[in-house]
C-alpha cells in the first residue's frame, strides 16, 4: 500500500509516437541532492519506500544492499553515492525507483520522485565536453528545459559499471 504503482504512461503515448512528426521522449524525473535527473521511462518499473536492507559485505560503497521487493531480492543502489553527490540520506525510509536493466531489477535510492515529463527531440543536447568524466560516463544526453537542464541517466552504465573514481 505504501508502494504506489507507477502508471506506465508511456504505453499510452507509444501508439501516437510513431505517427507524430516530432519524436518525444518520456522521462521519469527524480531529485538527489537538489539536482534533477531523468530516467528513461521504459526502465522504470515501480516506485516504493525502502524498508529493511541487507548489506552486502565487500560490495562497492554505492551498493546499499539487497531489498526484498515483493518476494524478489533486488540490489539497491544509492544514487547519491553513485554520482558522488554531497550530503547523506537523511530519511529513514527513502524513496526508491525500481528500474530494470539487462533482465535484472535494481532499486535506485533517490531523495524525491517527480512526474513523467515529455521532452521533444528538439530539446536534446549532447553532454558538454567539460562535464566531469565520472558524470559524463553515466549521462546519456541532456534535455534543455525551460526549468533548467535535465540530464538523462544511462541506466546500464549506472548500475553495471563501477564508478569511474574507484575504477581508475
Amino acid at each position: 500500500m505504501n508502494r504506489p504503482e507507477l502508471f506506465r504512461r508511456s504505453s499510452m503515448h507509444d501508439a501516437s509516437r510513431g505517427h507524430t512528426a516530432v519524436l518525444s521522449d518520456l522521462v521519469f524525473t527524480i531529485t538527489v541532492a537538489g539536482e534533477t535527473f531523468g530516467l528513461p521511462i521504459d526502465c522504470v518499473r515501480t516506485v516504493f519506500r525502502v524498508g529493511a536492507v541487507t548489506p552486502v559485505p565487500r560490495a562497492p560503497p554505492h551498493i546499499v544492499g539487497l531489498i526484498n521487493l515483493r518476494g524478489k531480492a533486488v540490489n539497491a543502489i544509492c544514487l547519491r553515492r553513485r554520482l558522488d553527490l554531497p550530503g547523506s540520506q537523511s530519511e529513514k525510509n527513502p524513496f526508491a525507483v525500481c528500474i530494470e536493466c539487462a533482465g535484472e531489477d535494481f532499486a535506485l535510492i533517490v531523495d524525491a520522485v517527480h512526474d513523467v515529463v515529455q521532452f521533444s527531440e528538439m530539446q536534446r543536447i549532447p553532454v558538454p565536453s567539460h562535464v566531469s568524466d565520472a558524470r559524463a560516463r553515466v549521462t546519456a544526453l541532456l534535455y534543455n528545459d525551460a526549468g533548467g537542464i535535465v540530464p538523462l541517466l544511462d541506466i546500464e552504465r549506472l548500475v553495471m559499471e563501477p564508478p569511474v573514481a574507484s575504477a581508475a
Partner: peptide
C-alpha cells in the same frame, strides 16, 4: 551487478521477508 562481489553464491528470502 553483484556477481563480482566475492564471497557469495546467491541470496534467499526467509519466511520473515529478510533477504
Amino acid at each position: 551487478s553483484l556477481a563480482k562481489v566475492p564471497g557469495f553464491a546467491g541470496n534467499t528470502i526467509l519466511g520473515d521477508g529478510t533477504v
